[in-house]
């Protein structure tokens, strides 16, 4: 009796203890909200199926145990109707789930469905390495080059994106397998050695969100944390311009041919990105 009661109790209090969804329980990205919806839907279906099958099993046990011992056992060849029922109902449920989630899956994984394919939405390349995230940005106003070029800007452990805009990043790894995980945005993608994997997402509100590694990658896996900084469009532009100045690279907005100004101001600040 103890264990079932404990299990029920834990199920009951888990959400209030923050054992459920990360953060405040509400996803910070549109796709995350749809994923959460799928989660709850599947949760409801499986709960219903679980309860009904348990009741059916309980009934069968009770029915069998109330038989008088002197009654002889009967042999029968099964019930065709019952078999059709318990095949068709789960089949229909599974098909429903399969079709229902397809749209979310496609928006999450098919690059052709990504809203962030227009120029300028590819904002950074994130390279995982034991045990940090190294980030490469293009010069503001330009598209990210697939390979590093002089003029790229670098940062570590802090990915900066604009709010309310679908953005895309390229995910790579320098060494072993890692996993790029934004728990509150419900974004998770493994980084595979030798592959460049595009990920797209959208953050709804400016703020700071955790970025974790979700693939055991070595002894320092636990501390492979970074942050996703979401800024309003104006703040984002300003921040990127400041970084461009820090790196002494001309942004596409200013005249590209002119020699880069801002070197003197760069040298005053130490705490810039390296």
């Amino acid at each position: 009796m103890f264990w079932p009661v404990l299990a029920l109790y834990i199920c009951w209090v888990a959400p209030t203890l923050g054992w459920g969804f990360p953060g405040d329980g509400v996803s910070d990205s549109p796709i995350g909200k749809r994923i959460d919806h799928l989660f709850w839907l599947i949760m409801a279906i499986t709960t219903g199926v679980f309860v009904l099958t348990q009741i059916a099993m309980g009934y069968a046990l009770w029915k069998a145990s109330t038989k008088k011992p002197e009654e002889p056992a009967q042999h029968f060849h099964g019930s065709h109707t019952l078999e059709v029922i318990w095949t068709v109902i789960p089949g229909a449920l599974l098909l429903f789930i399969a079709f229902y989630q397809m749209d979310v899956w496609a928006d999450f994984r098919l690059k052709s469905r990504a809203p962030a394919t227009k120029s300028g939405s590819l904002i950074a390349e994130v390279t995982a390495r034991q045990f940090e995230w190294r980030i490469r940005y293009p010069v503001p106003g330009k598209d990210l080059s697939p390979t590093p070029v002089p003029g790229d800007m670098y940062d570590v452990n802090e990915l900066i994106i604009p709010a309310k805009t679908p953005v895309m990043i390229y995910l790579r790894t320098d060494d072993v397998q890692h996993s790029f995980f934004l728990p509150t945005l419900r974004i998770k993608q493994d980084a595979i050695p030798g592959k460049v994997i595009p990920i797209w997402f959208e953050a709804e509100e400016p703020g700071s969100y955790p970025l974790l590694c979700a693939e055991l990658c070595g002894w320092g896996h636990y501390k492979m944390g970074g942050k996703l900084t979401v800024l309003s469009q104006e703040d984002y532009t300003a921040r990127m311009q400041k970084m461009a100045q820090d790196f002494g690279v001309a942004s596409a907005a200013s005249t590209p041919a002119a020699p880069t100004p801002g070197v003197a101001s760069t040298s005053q600040t130490q705490e810039g990105a390296n």
């Binding site: 001309a250 020699p259 880069t260 070197v263 040298s267």
Partner: peptide, 8 residues
Amino acid sequence: TPQGPRPE
């Protein structure tokens, strides 16, 4: 602190 700008 370098005084002048870096050329492209």
